[in-house]
Amino acid sequence: MLKKVAVIGGGVAGLEAARQLAALGYQTTVYEKNDHAGGHTSEWDRLFPNRRPAVEVVDTLKSQLNGNPAIVLSTPITELLPNGDKFTLKTSNKSFEADAVLIATGFELFQAERKEEYGYGIYDNVITSAELEKMFTEHGTPLMRNGEKPKRVAFVHCVGSRDEKVNHLYCSKVCCVTAVKQAIEAKEAIPEAEIFCLYMDLRMFGPGYEELYKEAQQKGINFIRGRLSEASELDGGRLLIKTEDTLASRPLKMSVDMLVLMVGMTPAEGTSKLIYNLGLKPNADGFIGVSDYHLKPSETGIRGVYTAGACSGPNNITDSINSARSAVVEIHRYLSVKEP
């Protein structure tokens, strides 16, 4: 009899893992809470570092599945319970069984209204990086509430990341390079616009990232080393932002037409509830804790339950794909190789 594997979450990690599991001959099902697969990537316009359309990645992942394994959409798993040496997955009205479970529930975006002083939800034209991405998809350019193109845009790094005031000490890893990517895109869409990045540290750790940063410099993006302290609205709707130009050791204020908040990754709300039933605890940042950060990054501590993607901490797509494959190897070992 075919062994069943349940993949919770149909983002890039879930899709990749499902593909590999099916190829290994497991009866695999992906449970996705939304009505479409692809996770956050499906809502993104273009990806760093090479600015390839996100839809390409999602479509490739989906097409590779080719109907096997099945993706069950609009099915949020709310409970995960051990059931002998199997597991039971429940939604509000259905119940499924599996021999092994891969949790790939990903992340949620930081709710920018929690940084009240940044004015999100209070002033027009304070938007999040995700909203800007949508603008790129829909209009190909940043647009203000009144439909005009902004003449000056500031990107604020680390919104909801590296901030103990919102209990997130961790770095979300992808926002720096995303900001640089979006800044370039904004500049290309509106060549006459002035674009600023307000950063604390530029964490350009991946291949092609530093190149992207250099490209941004070449294209005239301004970098200010300082964290935004507060924004206020000027008459006429422009925004006044305050930061310290730490390189000059002087407070700095400037007016902008649009403020883009680079919202970080936060643990998905349902995930900690999901693992709570199994007796697992989140790690210090609230993401799923893995057995061994170096040696067992896919294992949760419960045999038969594995994790991949950004549900165990901020990840980019490449790392999510890699972690999915690594989890598949562990699942395969668990289901088909006799333990010594």
Partner: peptide, 11 residues
Amino acid sequence: CIACGSCTATC
């Protein structure tokens, strides 16, 4: 301190 300058900006 990570020298972000928020304190100075808001002061």
